[in-house]
Amino acid sequence: MKIAVPIKFVPDLVEELNIDSSGAALDTSWLRLIINEFDDHAIEQAILLKERGGAEVTIICAEGDGVDDILFNAAAKGADQLVKLMGSDAAMMNSHATARVLADFFKEIQPDLILTGVQAHNDLDGSVGALLAEYLGMPYVGYVAGVTAASGSVIARKEYPGGIIGEMEVKLPAVLGIQAAEQPPRYVAYSKINQVSKTVKIEERAISDLDSSGGATVGRMFKPEPAQRAEIIEGSPEEVADRMVGIFKELGVM
């Protein structure tokens, strides 16, 4: 089975985010980008499928800072091919543009199964997976936490609210939006990644003419202005703990 995992970089939410001078986009000058955490789960799920039944796993990412490291990291986990899309800025591509670029590539390499992270926190025009499936004429199932290969199909465990799982049989080729792999993404030692980076090559592929039509056009971005922000309790841990106990008593829960 050929499995492809397209991944995306997103702003690290631990950092402070700012709006640029246009007022309609994030200021990217200081932005620290990290792998979308659901894409990390998609990689893990692909590797688990490979370990269980054999597969050839290809990871694809638009170029950018830190991308080589993430690709080598995936190779150290067991990915077979690494592809970098050149001439694109991951931070600037919306889901529609990304899905079109990926669809062109996948028409060539013809994977049986495409695993994408179910969403990224900065998607404003839906997630890549559902669009990609339509562009390729494949079925799509998202919110998946667990995949088992069968003959000519996969069984995807689709999550519903409250912990209910719907077992979906999906004919291949197909696209699945991964919410969580069956186990947390594994850790690989730096030495192993370093070793892999000397032997595995990253294939570079040029892309041009991004078509982002179909995406939302943002006129303004701003930080939320809540009607009421939390009252921040100042002081040492001891003082704050005292005040909190006071609050619990007032509310009658102690």
Binding site: L17, L124, A216, T217, G219, F222, P224
Partner: peptide, 29 residues
């Protein structure tokens, strides 16, 4: 066209979406 993660529509018919884990709001036609 598709707009995702919308929480509100403004009275003049714009979308208001949450993005970046709720740290940023995006508004548009």
């Amino acid at each position: 066209p598709l707009v995702s993660s919308c929480v509100n529509f403004t009275s003049d018919g714009k979308f208001l979406s949450q993005t970046c884990g709720g740290k940023i709001m995006a508004e548009g036609d």
